[in-house]
Design a protein around this nucleic acid. Sequence first.
DNA 1: TAGCAAACGCGAATCGCTCGTAGCTACGCC
DNA 2: GGCGTAGCTACGAGCGATTCGCGTTTGCTA
Lengths: 143, 143
Amino acid sequence: MRPADKLSHVGLKVTTPRLKVLHIFQTHERHHLTAEDVHRGMLDQKSDIGLATVYRVLGQLTDVGILSRNVFESGKAVYELQRGEHHDHLICLECGRVDEFSDDVIEERQRSIAEASGYALAQHQLALYGYCPACRERKTKRQ
Amino acid sequence: MRPADKLSHVGLKVTTPRLKVLHIFQTHERHHLTAEDVHRGMLDQKSDIGLATVYRVLGQLTDVGILSRNVFESGKAVYELQRGEHHDHLICLECGRVDEFSDDVIEERQRSIAEASGYALAQHQLALYGYCPACRERKTKRQ
DNA sequence: TAGCAAACGCGAATCGCTCGTAGCTACGCC
DNA sequence: GGCGTAGCTACGAGCGATTCGCGTTTGCTA
């Protein structure tokens, strides 16, 4: 589905800021972007869009399920295109790189733990923090 | 170990604000407190301690491992006494209640996932969000 | 108990994010 | 294709959580 169709499909008007935001997510080398990353991307391509608008658009796209939002250690929110299947994150404490993984065993355990505690599970967040292969190597050399 | 010994043991001076913070954690009915909860607790017992100091103390106690820090959905940091064993959290989206659990299967899977991706695992955070038994009941009645 | 580094207190500053509002625009209807 | 309006956007002010700067105070050691 083309970006414009995606938007009208969920009942959002097709506007320049929304298309630009989607475009940035689709073309950026990283999958996980902060509001500021997106905003900077806008300015780079000479689109004079306010940061507040970026936040608003990110929020709307998240609400309709086109994007998903995660808050990691740093305290900043990062957004990514929602590509269907759920996944969790591995975050490098050194360079900020984010990798993804999904694990059925963990998902299943989560469900039964919630059930055992009487909770109706709505969502979850699992983040593993550590040092990625590249940063580990860099560290070893330094010593 | 008494609070004062705990402090000197990790090389922190034994000061009034630090003792009061520890005291509040040890006597409060909830385990998970925000900086503001702690600050309010201080004021309640007529200790005129600045919010900035509360934050500073919470940070130091976390650094030395006496407290641990978590940031949940709300965006606020919550602190709790570190009682040895690691555990994860179940958070009620309605009333903010926090329960704890730990699961060896999940821990083990996390380790192997990190290893498989080449990451050196440093820490992790797993938070399950949902509705606690009390809030579920309240919801049912309301309808 | 004197001295000094460490810790405090408090207001101002920062940071990520949201609101208020006045002006603009996509898009369904003629 | 032109119009009207609900829905959008821009931008600065505002907000809540947290941190900083710095003058004052206080544990702790010699």
